[in-house]
Simulated assay, not measured.
Amino acid sequence: MQETAMYQFNDQFSKAATQFADVAANVNRLALENAEKAFGLHLAAIEETVNASFAFTGELLQVRDADSLKAVWPKGVQVARANAERNFGAVQEVFANTVKTNEAIGSLAKAQFEQAGAQVKAEVEKATKAASKAAK
């Protein structure tokens, strides 16, 4: 009888460990996908910022007098504003993706805890029934 109980315990432990490993793998996959998206968004924003800045720098290097500088200055402000807006937009999108990823990870963890709780409850009920039968 003890061997059967030991086998059941080992089997339950093995199933729980497998479920935990599956959930951990899914959490890691979600986190990695989020990191890849964040890196891609930031890289794209940096690329656009660098391109716009170099284009403006090229125009700025051709300035030879104060009147030319007055003509170019508003464009420089516009480039700086566009760069800031682009970077802020990328940060907002990364934040939104991170929130979604964290919600998905939370729901995976919640499901894991609920499933483990249901299994424990079922085992307790099973043991209680077995104990009450043995007592009779």
Rank of each mutant, 00 (worst) to 15 (best):
A45Q: 06
F88C: 14
K37P: 01
V27Y: 03
A111W: 13
K70D: 09
A82P: 10
F113L: 11
A25G: 14
K75H: 03
F39D: 08
N102A: 08
F88A: 02
W73N: 07
L41W: 08
A134W: 07
A5D: 07
A82L: 01
A25L: 09
E123P: 04
E3C: 08
Q12G: 10
A45L: 00
K136I: 02
R81C: 11
W73L: 10
A127C: 04
A52P: 07
V72I: 04
I46K: 00
K15R: 07
D11C: 05
I46L: 00
K110E: 08
L30G: 05
N10A: 12
S53G: 01
F88L: 12
E36P: 00
K121E: 13
R64Q: 13
L30S: 09
A135M: 15
N26F: 05
T49E: 01
L43I: 07
K121R: 14
A118S: 15
S107D: 14
V77D: 10
P74Y: 04
Y7I: 08
V23G: 04
R86P: 06
G106I: 06
Y7T: 03
E3S: 12
A111R: 10
K70M: 08
Q8N: 01
S14K: 15
L43V: 10
A80D: 09
A44T: 05
N10M: 09
R64Y: 06
V124L: 09
L61D: 12
I46N: 00
Q12R: 05
L69I: 02
K100R: 13
T49P: 00
K136M: 02
V72R: 01
N34P: 15
A71R: 14
A45M: 13
A109K: 05
A116R: 12
V120F: 13
V91Q: 10
V50E: 11
T98K: 10
A134Y: 07
A118L: 13
V27F: 02
Q12N: 11
E3V: 14
A82D: 09
E103L: 04
D67Y: 11
S132H: 05
S132D: 11
A55K: 05
G89T: 15
S132T: 13
R29N: 01
F95T: 07
L32I: 03
R81D: 13
I46P: 00
K129L: 11
E33W: 05
V63S: 00
D11R: 15
V77A: 08
A122Y: 07
A44N: 03
F9R: 03
S107L: 15
A90E: 06
A118P: 13
E114K: 07
A127V: 02
